[in-house]
Simulated scan of single mutants.
Amino acid sequence: MLRVVNRVLLGLVGLALLCVGGGVLATGLGVSVPSWWPYTGRKDVLLSDADRDRWREQSWWWPVVIAVLAALVLLTLWWLLSQLRRARLAEVLVDTGDGEGALLRGRAMEDVLESEARSLDGVARARVRLTGRRTAPRARVRLLLEPHAAPGRALERLTTEAVAHARDSAGLAALPTEARLRAAKHRAQRVT
C-alpha cells in the first residue's frame, strides 16, 4: 500500500512540476498562455519590486523563506535517495558446488524462512526481509511471540532451525540475521 501511495504521490508531483515548468518555458518563448497564468511576458518576474519592498521591513521574512526553501530541497533530496534504495533483495546467488551458480528468488527464500519461523513453538506471526548483496544476503526477522513463549528459547530455535536451514539450503557460508521480538498482548477474558 505504501509503495502505491508513494508512486502516485511522486507521479503527481512530477506532473505538477512538468506543467509549471512548461508554462514558464512557454511564457519565456513568447507563446500565448491562458489569461489566468501569473506570468504574461518575457520581462515578467516572480517577485516585483513592490512585493520585495513590502516584506523588506519585516526582518524575519527572508530568513524564513530561505530556511523553508532549504528544508524543502533537503526533504526532496532525501525522498529521491529513498526511491533509489532497494528495500528487498531480489535474488540470492546459490553455490551449486560445480563452479557454476544458480539464482534463487529472494521472495522465495523469504517465504520459506518466514513459514519455518512461524511454525516454531510460541511464535504467533513472523515477517522476514532479505537485504544486502546477492552474494552476501542478510536477514531481518520480526517475530510476534505468544504470551506463553520464552523469548530466549524462541530466538535459539530461530537461529538453530529456521536460519540454519535457509543458510544450508542456499549454500551460504553465513546468513547474518537481525531478529526483533515482540510479545503479543494478552487480552483479558471474562470468566463466568
Rank of each mutant, 00 (worst) to 15 (best):
P137I: 00
R138I: 02
R167L: 05
V73R: 08
V68M: 09
A179R: 08
S35Q: 15
T192A: 09
R180H: 14
H186N: 08
R182L: 10
T159H: 08
L81V: 00
V163L: 04
E156F: 15
W60L: 13
G152W: 13
R42T: 04
R118H: 03
Q189C: 09
P63I: 02
G101S: 12
R125T: 09
L181P: 01
G122D: 11
R85L: 11
A50V: 03
L120T: 02
G14R: 06
S119T: 06
A124S: 08
L47N: 09
L12W: 15
M109T: 04
E100C: 08
T96C: 07
D44H: 08
V123N: 06
M109C: 13
R134C: 01
A16G: 06
A179I: 03
R129D: 13
G21Q: 10
G106M: 10
L84T: 06
V33G: 07
S82M: 11
I66D: 06
D98F: 04
L75T: 03
T76P: 00
L15C: 15
R86L: 10
L46K: 09
V123E: 02
P151K: 04
T177S: 09
H165W: 15
R105H: 11
E156R: 15
S32A: 15
I66G: 03
L46R: 08
L84G: 13
A149T: 03
A179V: 07
L10K: 14
L84N: 11
L81K: 09
L155S: 09
L74G: 08
R138V: 02
A154F: 04
L29R: 14
E116P: 00
E116F: 09
E156I: 03
L89G: 04
I66W: 05
R56M: 10
W60P: 06
R167S: 07
T27S: 07
R134T: 00
V33S: 11
V24P: 08
T40H: 14
A71V: 01
W37T: 02
A124I: 01
L12C: 15
V68A: 14
D168V: 14
T40S: 15
T76S: 15
L80Q: 15
V163M: 07
I66S: 04
R129G: 09
R86N: 10
P38A: 04
V24R: 12
D111S: 06
E57V: 03
E91M: 02
L144Q: 13
W55Q: 13
H186W: 05
L75P: 00
T27F: 02
A162E: 12
N6F: 07
L12K: 12
E178V: 06
P34V: 11
L77I: 00
D51V: 02
H148Q: 10
E110Y: 13
T27P: 05
L84M: 14
R7G: 12
M109H: 06
M109I: 01
L144Y: 00
P151I: 02
P151R: 04
V8Q: 08
V123M: 03
K185V: 06
L9C: 11
R86W: 11
V191D: 10
E110C: 07
E57W: 14
G97Q: 06
V13H: 12
Q58C: 10
D51M: 11
L46S: 10
A183P: 14
L47Y: 13
W60C: 09
R105L: 13
D49G: 02
S48A: 03
R54C: 01
R54V: 01
L47I: 05
V73A: 08
T192G: 12
E146C: 01
G97N: 11
K185C: 01
